[in-house]
Amino acid sequence: MTDYHDRKSFNLHVLRSKIVNWKQGHEDNEHSQRAVDFLIKKLKNSEGVLDSLAKVLLNPYLPSPCITIPPSVDKRIQIVYRKEFPHVVYCRLWRFADLQNYHELIPSSQCRYPFSSGNNRNQKHVCINPYHYDRVPSQVLPSIIEPRINNENTPPTPPLSMCSPDPYSPQFSNHHTLSSWCTINYYEYSSKVGDQFRASSSQIFVDGYTSPYRNFSNRFSLGLLENIKRQKGVEFVRESIGRGIELIEHCNGDVSIRNRSWSCSVFVQSILYNRLIGSNDFTIHHLPRRQSIHSIFNSSLFAQLVNDPLATYESILDLTKLCSIQVSFKYGWGYEYGQREITSTPCWLSILINEPLRLLDARLQQLQPQQATTSS
């Protein structure tokens, strides 16, 4: 009996090594191993299922059975620091290395137990066979995932330094007098790392390299920032940032963002942009490599909200959150991406647009006396 268990343990160890080595792309080794360990634990007592999985990965385009696990209450699985839908985890691991979320997958006709995002409490099995799912063509993905992006070949609006000032734009007429038009803080999970970066140039680059600030005043190089408590998952993301992102403040006060990386996706949340395009405030936008969003901050819409004649002190104060933009590298957050908060992602930025905050202060000073008079 002991010999049988020893042989079984040895076979599982060999199988685990093979399955891990079949991974696609550059997924973090720790995450890959944990994902495989989780699956082996779920499948090891099911006769022949692990062997079936190995055959699927060895002969991917032959007909294959469903490889199923029981769904959890919220239908997700926790692997290291990420909580995701299981079929997404294993499709990314073994087939689609750049897969971001379940919206990008559709079950094949041969799958008997496909993943369902609905409230189907009768679903007892979920198939994680990566070859029972196909990639959804990018042109039919939901708009909540892909923002309105500008193609790399589209010439961008020139930055402020290349524009003539507009004296007839009262809402942003004084923004060039501020010492910095935005401030950027860098975080690793919930910990702020390094000093705040103040953008004095209208064109800013945030990259993963190691160029000192004093040499390039328009460049925030994250590779310089040290963190003695840095986790392994953070290092993996930092290595992929590369050319990073570009931020441009345009002459009308709008702000655009471009993903300059050759390999790293960027995820962006801007409440003001979401209101501009009619999305939910908390929508997270996937910005693929070499793509851009022009009005991630739209000065015209912001001015309308600030100058609303029916606005109250409280409603103007609430506009503060519209002056902030969150950007994460490599991994998204929110319901579609398996991370509840941006603080669950390894590397991210908080970008604060300063001129709108100045306008809010001025508007609040106008409303403060009225509020005091009303309360008396």
Rank of each mutant, 00 (worst) to 15 (best):
W94D: 02
F96T: 10
L99M: 07
Q100Y: 05
N101W: 03
Q110M: 13
Q110I: 13
Q110N: 14
Y113N: 07
P114V: 02
S117H: 12
S117N: 10
N119A: 15
N119E: 14
N119P: 07
R121D: 02
R121M: 08
N122L: 14
Q123C: 04
Q123F: 05
K124R: 15
C127R: 01
C127N: 01
C127G: 00
V136M: 00
S138P: 06
Q139T: 12
Q139Y: 12
Q139V: 09
V140H: 08
L141I: 06
P142R: 01
P142Y: 04
S143A: 10
I144M: 10
P147L: 00
R148Y: 10
E152W: 09
N153T: 11
P155W: 04
P155V: 01
P155G: 06
T157S: 07
M162F: 09
S164C: 05
S164I: 03
S164K: 07
S164M: 04
P167L: 02
Y168Q: 14
S169V: 05
P170W: 02
Q171I: 08
F172E: 02
N174L: 14
H175T: 07
H176T: 15
T177L: 15
S180D: 13
W181K: 06
W181A: 05
T183W: 13
I184F: 03
N185P: 05
Y187M: 06
Y189D: 00
S190G: 09
S191C: 14
K192H: 04
V193F: 08
V193T: 11
V193L: 09
